[in-house]
Design a binder for these strands. Sequence first.
RNA 1: GGGCCUCUAGCUCAGGUGGUUAGAGCGUACCCCUGAUAAGGGUAAGGUCUCUGGUUCGAGUCCAGAGAGGCCCA
Length: 937
Amino acid sequence: MDLSKTVNLPYTEFEMKANLPLNEPNIIEFWKENRIYYKALNKNKNNNKVFILHDGPPYSNGKIHLGHALNKILKDIIVKYKTLKGYYSPFIPGWDTHGLPNEKAAIDTFKIDRKKVSPIYIREKSKEIAVNYSEIQKEQFIRLGVFADWENPYLTLNPSYESIIVKSFGELYQNGYIYRDLKPVYWCYECETSLAEAEIEYKNKISPSIVVAFKLLNQEFLNKYNLNEAYILIWTTTPWTLPANVALAFKPDSSYVIINYNNNNYIISKEALFNSWQLEFIRKGEYKILFEFNSNELNNLKAKHPFIDRESILLPADYVDISDGSGIVHTAPGHGLEDYLTGKKYNLPILSPIDSEGKFTDEIDFLKSIHVNQANNIIIDIIEKNRLLLNKGNYEHSYPHCWRCKNPVIFRATYQWFLDVQKMKDKLVKEVNQVKWYPEWGLIRMLNMLENRPDWCLSRQRVWGVPIPVLYCNNCKKPNVNKVLVDHIAEIISKEGSDSWFKNDSNYFKPNGYKCMYCSYEDFSKEEDIFDVWYESAVSHLSVLYNNLKFHPSDLYLEGADQYRGWFQVSLITSVGVLDRAPYKAVLTHGWVLDEFGRAMHKSLGNVIDPMEIVEEYGADILRLFFATTEYTNDIKISKKTLATIVEIYKKIRNTIRFILGNLYDFDINAFDLNIDNLLLLEKYILFRFKELLNEIEGFMEKFEFHRYVNEIYDFIVHDLSSLYLDIKKDVLYTYAKDSFERRSTQLVLYHILKSLLIILFPILSFTCEQAYKHLKYTDSISCYLESFPDFNNINFNLDEINNVKNIINLYKSSLPIFEVLKNQGNFKTLNETILKIYSNDNSLLDYFQNNFKLIKEIFRVADIELSNSYNFANLKDKQITFSIGDKNYTLFIDFIKSNYLKCERCWNYFKELKQIENHKVCNRCLDVLKNVGIVI
RNA sequence: GGGCCUCUAGCUCAGGUGGUUAGAGCGUACCCCUGAUAAGGGUAAGGUCUCUGGUUCGAGUCCAGAGAGGCCCA
């Protein structure tokens, strides 16, 4: 007789080796074929619980990187959790498709000469690229296990979406937030377009650096200080902006000086004497201070422009830094934002004699058609010839560059459409304060950013985008914007797409019988500018939430922390502008994925890791588990080493699942009902622990603390299950009669815990849980995702019983080091061949142990236990432990001695006596089992 | 230059309102098991909490400064 054949060893087809890269695609196929995402939605549709996470659209001009993967996986975890909790939680993915990067890509890829082909052709090719990449990204997200309405994503190029873009402009206009104005904007003369702040990169650049003298014209001021003449000094690194100079700005109410050097009098701030700017004679102190005066005396004085017959006015400005340069700032309202604001305040002319290619217009005749870069030297020469140049040199500084073509940009005043952010600032602040920010510092960051937010230039001079819906009267030239007109245009675009604007004549877009709102003329020209792409993604809440889902505001926005300035902010602005409220109730941000040294990933550094490489090597579940174990609100460092750790954690989880599955191979759920009162102590204990676990992890998930969620579950798996409960219960599972009460109740508990584990881990390890779920019997659903999040709250426990088990487990844990020492001395090898000896001089404590004899024996898995109140301290000095019952502490001694018991050949436990069966010796219990199954008569 | 953030064992994370020898897991070393087996169990060694200064009887935990890194902006 082979006794090992009479033992109930685990069996399952759920393999130990995961082989995720190979198996995951099959599971994806299963989800797709069975429409699991949609089934779960349907299931919760009438639950009256809704949770909407609104997806921010990634830009569709490349494959996904780890940042995209992190973002979508985090979103997926939340949506899956909410769905399992019974929420109706549709997740509509989106893509940002218009804009310069794709237009550039089209021009490069298809070698397009912008001046020779029609806008329609460029748009067609841009669309090809955008759609292609959105499809690629979609497949990649699906491969990561992300559940979403992949059949109906929102693309900003969809006509229905475009019409919302157009329509919202009309609504903002009607609400008084839109204006048109000449304004300096970042301008790229290579791309011939204005750029949003988001399209600017700062890089170091070497610029010419000159100090220029403006001759003071006010005789009264000169007389006061007994001077014949004096010059105001300014320092600039952009000589080409001097033709547009109309003012000189000084810091109000500050100390300024008149100094004399080489028989000339110069006016600068007092501070300027002590900083190391360009002038050598100042650095060397070769000047004489003639007078010191309050800068307010400069107010409204006039100076002569260094090479144009024009006066420049002296004005106060708070932003002037008295310790920077001369402390007096050359002001050209057409070429700088602060200059512009000063210009507006004092009604100065806004000069902008530069065309779209960066060349001077005929406003300045000697510079006509000359590019700003060439103009610098010409201007410097003229100033030098006029003997007004005090210094010329080079200066390296951080300077704005175009994010696409990497060329330096300029400030240039042009007519643009603006969204008046200043006007709604109070409302924005109010709304921001009502949003729940995760992490909390998001609130402060958002408020700080809003404070400095300038008005939003909405217009772009490009073709790949949505047209700004304005018609210009061909008679009075005034722009026509109103609700009737805009809604009409939106209607056309919703049917024909924005291509229509580029294909059709201007008058195609006016409603029947429409006349100019100013002069009643009936012939119009189209606006040629398109919307900033940020505007397009900024109205996603109007299209996806308000229009389609009929649910606004959303419960959550979740993006990288860079979006405080980006999508969070622009969405807030359009939402307040149109609907007077924020588009989100809560905002959650994540950090960036960095390399193992904590550096950002850059192509130039060669440290970029492709998420799909990780998926192909380890599997998507590994990447998901990795992200779920990080504190993602900070930046995340990723490396092979870290992934190896994750693989180990994964294996442990998988093996535990597999072991439980294996022990359920003959489980019969109908054996009896789960009635807590019927169960044995350890079964109650493990269920109690699981209930505790559920309560804890739900708290973590509500706060989006996935790493604590996973760690807590993993802790349970390692400590409570694998090393304790499962290890102890092997004896029952393997050697007890199949239908014994002990074995069946253990199986029942294992069944419920496993099923629950698969559900609570599903949001993280979707593939593995789904696969394991298929091996679980007695389930009602075809997918783990169609289950409900487990709830043990209606199970009540006798806390005295539970605490009792806890006490004994603590006794066991603190006894193990003593056992380990004895084992290493060679006295014995395993616990079950030893006798546990407990010494205490407290008889009530010994009674306590006597009453828990069975439990102690089960947990310790020893052959026997001996309790004693007499002992020799000398023999036990290293065997003292502290034992607690409640808050009462006892000191006692623990010893293990090798028993002379005999090993049962079937269950491998040790007994005082065994029975002989055929050629084997077995214990009484095993004998009963063998008789029961008829092996022994 | 400004706003915001991060810095605890080799790695990933815990460490309410400041208070005994700073906790886990993974990894490492060693041991046991061979009926979870390219598994399972156990024990141990690893941090003075980035640095400096301060407040305090007492600080990883509060304050100030520095360093390294990240995002956003000028």
